[in-house]
Design a protein around this nucleic acid. Structure first.
Lengths: 146, 146
DNA sequence: TTAGTTTCTGAATGTCATTTTCAAAATCGC
DNA sequence: GCGATTTTGAAAATGACATTCAGAAACTAA
């Protein structure tokens, strides 16, 4: 079941309504790999759909997170970002603090070790956040050349 | 050199001034293991020092982070927290999303794997954030008993 | 100690992303 | 189409963080 189907299913099951705004937002959201903030997605949408309001984008992104087709990310830059998510594809992030580049990585061994740590402290882990901040190769070169 | 000395040294070196407010804030900040938000520390201070303003607490915590005796933490609850920090004692956090309990952990193997990931993507890592969210043993018991 | 310079303080205000409100519009089952 | 319900978008509210400014306090040199 693709994300559009998941969303439609969720909308129906919750007694919500299927509006053109929601569809336009979902299409645009899925049509790029970017990690959109509400602001960014709103600005992008405005080009083709200038009538869609900021509040609608905001509420719709929350809906995506609610029904599991997106997750909220916070890279500490003051903006919450949303990323399309396949339930089975967990990954973490490398963030370039200079140019904003975001790279996804998976490291099963780290996941294992996390579970060991959780066991040790008798925690039941629901989610985690693991982000590495620094410079991507391009920005590292630039700053050493200056 | 303890944290008070580090702070005094920093204040002197930057041409700042040593005020009674800053000393009271530092004492209170160090006198507990809590991970204070500005709000929380302000409220705690107010009991003994009702004249110290919120803005002063805010600015002083920033100073602590600047001079390296504290680090800013963000557990995604909308409040920045500050933790007293020994430069050589890096650790990450387990956070109970029910009761707010924060436990520190270190896992050298995870650190190693992080560096490997960074190399693989040609990133120069400056800092990272690694937090595990879930239920501590007490809260897990409660919620299974309900 | 004291005068002079600089920094600090605290109340108030500003900023900005996020969240809510509310009246008008759209959706959907019948 | 009708009617109940949800949604929309503009505007306003919220809340954490950050700054302003005038009076107070701390340092510095004599």
């Amino acid at each position: 079941m693709d994300k559009i189907a998941v969303f439609n299913e969720y909308v129906r099951s919750q007694g919500l309504k299927n509006t053109s705004q929601r569809m336009r937002i979902l299409e645009t959201f899925l049509g790029s790999k970017a990690h959109y903030s509400t602001e960014e997605l709103y600005l992008k949408l405005r080009k083709d759909h200038p009538k869609i309001g900021y509040a609608t984008v905001y509420r719709t992104l929350k809906l995506f997170a609610e029904c599991g087709i997106a997750i909220e990310l916070d890279f500490g830059d003051g903006q919450t970002r949303f990323e399309p998510l396949n339930i089975d594809q967990h990954h973490d992030h490398l963030v370039c603090t200079n140019c904003g580049l975001i790279v996804e990585f998976t490291e099963p061994q780290i996941e294992k070790l996390q579970h060991q740590v959780a066991e040790q402290y008798e925690f039941t882990i629901v989610r985690h956040r693991h982000e590495l901040y620094g410079l991507c190769s391009k920005c590292a070169m630039k700053s050493s050349n200056h």
